[in-house]
């Protein structure tokens, strides 16, 4: 295989990994936006919490917990954080305007980042796992096992989420709230409870992203901010609250970002993502697939 092709394939795999990260983040953002019209600026910080939870759990002395056990633990930890955030702040502001939402969630973001700063300082924390150290070479392309796991998990989670919102009673109630809130209340669905559950699931997805992706990068207190914005870009590109569209946009952005950083400029990789976002806002604000009401 020529070196050019090898670089290209590695770039695509990088792009898919990035896309998987954005997809996990954007699924949660799209879910909670769809259900509560809430733009959660603290969403990326739940990813950060997931990263630190992984760091802490990997480092537990004398208990070499296997990674497959740690991942669900990390998800539970971030869901617990989400629940606390929902109970303390979100449910008080949920019926207010988007301005209040923005201030409240940005406030949560600042608080979480500063707690992380106090506990872990700004030093990047490494969280290698046995899978991130294990290199495989299918078809001559070098990659870590971690990337394969990430892709598989994201696909499974995506399909699972589809099944959940279309087939289960709770999932259908979540869709129902996203489509008409008053009607939900009137048929006997506790709307606030559904919002709470959605927020916790959404946080769990961000935590899962943290547990999966942190081993490839490093964990810092501010790592969530940029991710929130990129996730939001994917939500808008996908058509605001349309999960499948957002996931498609997330993978698109991931691959474009990877190609751009390999062949054009690594330093300006964020420019291309937000450039696309801004162009869409100008010329196609309804997103790739058009605007829909509800999930």
């Amino acid at each position: 295989m020529s070196i050019e092709l090898e670089i290209f394939l590695e770039t695509i795999i990088n792009g898919l990994t990035l896309g998987a990260l954005y997809a996990l983040v954007t699924m949660g953002l799209a879910l909670i936006f769809g259900v509560a019209r809430l733009v959660n600026f603290a969403h990326g910080d739940l990813f950060m919490i997931g990263g630190y939870a992984l760091f802490v759990l990997l480092g537990v002395e004398g208990m070499e917990l296997p990674y497959v056990l740690i991942v669900p633990l990390v998800v539970i930890v971030t869901m617990a954080f989400s629940w606390i955030i929902e109970r303390t702040v979100i449910h008080r502001v949920i019926n207010q305007s988007w301005r209040v939402h923005a201030v409240a969630t940005l406030g949560i973001s600042i608080v979480l980042q500063n707690i992380a700063l106090i506990l872990f300082t700004t030093d990047p924390k490494q969280t290698p796992t046995i899978f991130s150290r294990q290199i495989i070479e299918p078809f001559g392309v070098r990659m870590s096992m971690q990337r394969v796991i990430i892709l598989v998990v994201v696909i499974v989670v995506f399909l699972g989420l589809q099944y959940f919102v279309r087939r289960t009673k709770l999932g259908k109630a979540i869709r129902a709230v996203s489509q008409n809130r008053d009607m939900c209340a009137i048929v006997g669905i506790d709307v606030k409870k559904i919002v709470m559950i959605t927020f916790v699931i959404s946080g769990g997805l961000a935590g899962l992203a943290g547990a999966l992706l942190a081993p490839l990068y490093s964990v810092t207190p501010m790592m969530g901010s940029l991710l929130t914005l990129k996730g939001l870009a994917a939500v808008v590109l996908g058509g605001l609250g349309y999960i499948n569209g957002a996931v498609f946009a997330a993978f698109g952005l991931g691959i474009i970002e990877a190609l751009f950083s390999t062949y054009v400029s690594f330093a300006f990789k964020d420019v291309i993502v937000f450039g696309i976002f801004i162009l869409f806002l100008f010329f196609r604000p309804q997103g790739i697939f058009g605007r829909r009401v509800g999930l």
Partner: peptide, 27 residues
Amino acid sequence: RPDQIARLGLRRTFQDVRNFPNMTVMD
């Protein structure tokens, strides 16, 4: 709360129609 009242057996409709537009009639 409205959902509690609904579950007690009191139901209503709206002047401007409310449905779940992306769901089938059956759903």
